[in-house]
Design a protein around this nucleic acid. Structure first.
Length: 652
RNA sequence: GCCGGCUUAGCUCAGCUGGUAGAGCACCUGAUUUGUAAUCAGGGGGUCACAGGUUCGAGUCCUGUAGCCGGCACCA
């Protein structure tokens, strides 16, 4: 039998040789380092015999696949440890995931945080036992019966979903065994000790809320302790960027149980960011031909029947208010209001595309368990607009919307995001408006727009809006949760439900498309993202306080006040009002004032003492700690004005 | 919504097995007037999330509610 190695070298063995044997034949170092083999591109246990000529690669800890393998084996060891400690607990599934692994268990008594160190200790023990792994192949039906007899009903159910007549593989670690596709390491010892259990959570069997809820234990696992420590440190660093923490520290926003879960209160500092973003949007949208409108936050229910929100979206809406015997709803979206504006007048083909924009306040009854800081709220304000266009204009308009995104993201240095084309699951049309051909047309236009404009995207089936496919821009929060930061849809339904038409060159009425777009998403989520993106150290144009005047002695208070007043009066072109500069008049030492300004992440500190007062200068210190020395006030004014107007994040 | 955990001063947190509350920072006052990350001293501030219950007695135990945190489900 011939085994070919990656370097092209061919070796001859007798039939039944294992990848482990081959590794040993190559050298003792490799034999020791080997984790699993890769046979003709397929992962293969070291101890699993080969019965035909093959290309073989030996995978060690150094290979990129190693982490996933370690995590998969760690999940098995977790399951083993739990079953040893808590007899009667059923195992279900336990995959490797990003940065770690989890295992879902069925057990009447809940796991507690105190159980984790105990389980972890047991896992280390199992690793130390260095139990050999064995692989067996069983007929499907035997496996079902076996797991059923053991009381492992979830495992039995899993095997039942495997086609009849197929065999399944069973892996043994010592005398513990589990159904598994494999592969696994030769012994439990090869997993090493660089793992840690991180959290306990509830999780539905097969991800369906109608099923029983299992108990999930999460863990993380790495090649060695150094990698594990680095990972844990990274988590700590991420927590420091958490917008909820920074938002409290910098007094950007707050919540109150008296007002309600998910209903944010924007504080003056946070409102600065919001207004500057809104002003940016106003400027950019005007360049792109949008016009502003304003519409109510509440409406009679009829509007939402017409828009089909009530049948398709009711669960996400606040309960109606009874006003004079009529139901009024808080709006979850702005579209029907904009459609009403479009419908209020007749439109010629010459007017199209018609683009109307509103920073619209919406309310959605989000599931209580999903609320999270400003990232997921029940009351929010969306950077919304609707583009009414002819069918033949839709693709180009969609591209323009993508380009608008790019302008924003470039400006703010946002690089880590991806685009997701959310399509309907055409087999489950109960969730979507049942117009298969219109779905296909709309999907075709979006795909073409994306392809032509060269923006890469991934596809996600079953995530479309009920009225059309969409492109979502996805980001990750500081703590690793993925969020939609912007969503853009192509809507073929509104033309019917709201009877929106335009008069063509032929004098007849024609249907149209509506593009829903929100490049900056909502103020709430976008600001939350920006807080984490900048770790609270906002560029000057967004910083709530752009500079702080720090008088060294009371003797220079008059001059310090003049500095502040001059700066506050300085108008910037790309800003909502003058510069935002304050003054620290506390009876404290300069060092303390600098520290305070630093902790508040104020971009510029203007230290003013008797020397500066005499010369009309300010001593400029950056947030980074860099001291620019004294400069004439005018020089500094020119600098900060330029910086604010550029909207650039100038490196400190 | 579901599972688990948490909720003590504005913030961060102490408070042993039940004996009616503490620190640091912040805030206020006074002293100090200071050259690039914390000057000193004094003071005010808590119906221990809320509502019930057990107990001679509850921040500590039990039940319910709300909010928050971690997941799951949901997410135009």
């Amino acid at each position: 039998m011939t085994i070919t190695l990656p370097d092209g070298k061919a070796m001859t063995f007798t039939r039944g040789v294992t990848p482990g044997d081959v590794a040993a034949a190559i050298g003792p170092g490799l034999a020791k380092a080997a984790l699993i083999g890769e046979v003709d591109g397929k992962e293969w246990d070291l101890f699993r015999p080969l019965d035909h000529d093959a290309k073989l690669r030996i995978i060690t800890k150094k290979d990129p696949e190693a982490l996933e393998l370690i995590r998969h084996d760690a999940a098995h060891i977790l399951a083993m440890a739990v079953q040893e400690l808590f007899p009667g607990t059923q195992v279900t599934i336990g995959p490797a995931i990003e940065d770690g692994f989890y295992y879902d268990f069925a057990r009447n008594k809940p796991f507690t945080p105190e159980d984790l160190p105990v389980i972890e200790a047991k896992m280390h023990e199992i690793v130390k036992r260095d139990l050999p792994t064995r692989r067996e192949v069983w007929p499907r039906d035997k496996a079902i019966q076996h797991f059923r007899d053991m009381g492992e009903s979830y495992k039995a159910e899993l095997i039942e979903s495997i086609p009849e007549g197929e065999d399944v593989s069973i892996y043994w670690h010592g005398d513990w065994h589990d159904l598994c596709r494999g592969p696994h390491f030769r012994t439990t010892g090869q997993v090493g000790d660089a793992f840690k259990l991180t959290k306990i959570a509830g999780a539905y069997w097969r991800g369906d809320a109608n099923n029983a809820q299992l108990q999930r234990i999460y863990g993380t696992a790495w090649r060695d302790q150094k990698e594990l420590d680095a990972y844990l440190l990274k988590l700590e660093e991420q927590e420091k960027r958490d917008h909820r923490k920074i938002g409290r520290e910098m007094e950007l926003f707050t919540f109150s149980p008296d007002i309600g879960a998910g209903l944010p209160l924007w504080m003056p500092n946070g409102m600065v960011i919001r207004q500057e973003l809104e002003f940016l949007a106003l400027q950019e949208e005007r360049k792109d031909g949008y016009r502003r409108v304003a519409t109510p936050h509440i409406t009679k229910e009829n509007l939402f029947y017409r828009s089909r929100h009530l049948p398709y979206y009711k669960e996400d809406m606040y309960a109606p208010l009874d006003i004079d015997g009529e139901n009024y709803y808080l709006r979850p979206m702005n579209c029907p209001f904009h459609h009403t504006i479009y419908g209020a007048t007749r439109h010629s083909y010459r007017e199209l595309p018609l683009r109307i924009a509103e920073y619209g306040q919406d309310y959605r009854y989000e599931a209580s368990g999903g609320l999270s800081g400003l990232m997921r709220v029940r009351g929010f304000c969306m950077n919304d607009a609707h583009i009414y266009c002819r069918y033949d204009q839709a693709k180009d308009e969609f591209i323009r919307v993508m380009q608008l995104h790019a302008r924003y993201y470039d400006l703010m240095g946002i690089k880590e995001y991806y685009m997701r084309l959310s399509l309907p699951d055409l087999d489950k049309l109960d969730k979507y408006v049942d117009e298969p051909q219109k779905w296909l047309d709309a999907m075709g236009i979006i795909k073409q727009a994306m392809t032509e404009s060269g923006y890469p995207f991934v596809e996600a089936k079953g995530e479309a809006a009920f009225y059309g496919p969409k492109i979502d821009f996805m980001i990750k929060s500081a703590i690793g949760t993925e969020y939609t930061i912007s969503t853009n849809q192509l809507d073929f339904l509104a033309t019917e439900t709201f009877n929106l038409k335009y008069i063509g060159e032929d004098g007849a009425e024609h249907p149209l498309y509506v593009i829903h777009r929100a490049p900056l998403g909502t103020h709430e989520r976008f600001t939350a993202f920006l807080i984490e993106h900048y770790a609270g150290a906002f560029p000057v144009w967004l910083a709530p306080v752009q500079a702080r005047v720090i008088p060294i002695t009371e003797k220079v208070n008059d001059f310090a006040h003049k500095v502040m007043a001059d700066l506050n009066a300085l108008q910037v072109v790309n800003g909502t009002a003058g510069l935002r500069v304050d003054i620290d008049l506390a009876s404290e030492r300069m060092q303390k004032k600098i520290r305070d300004a630093q902790l508040q992440k104020i971009p510029y500190m203007l230290v003013v003492g008797e020397r500066e007062a005499a010369e009309g200068k300010v001593a400029v210190r950056l947030r980074s700690g860099k001291d620019l020395g004294a400069m004439p006030l005018e020089t500094f004014m020119a600098r900060i004005k330029k910086e604010a107007e550029s909207r650039q994040d100038v490196a400190d």
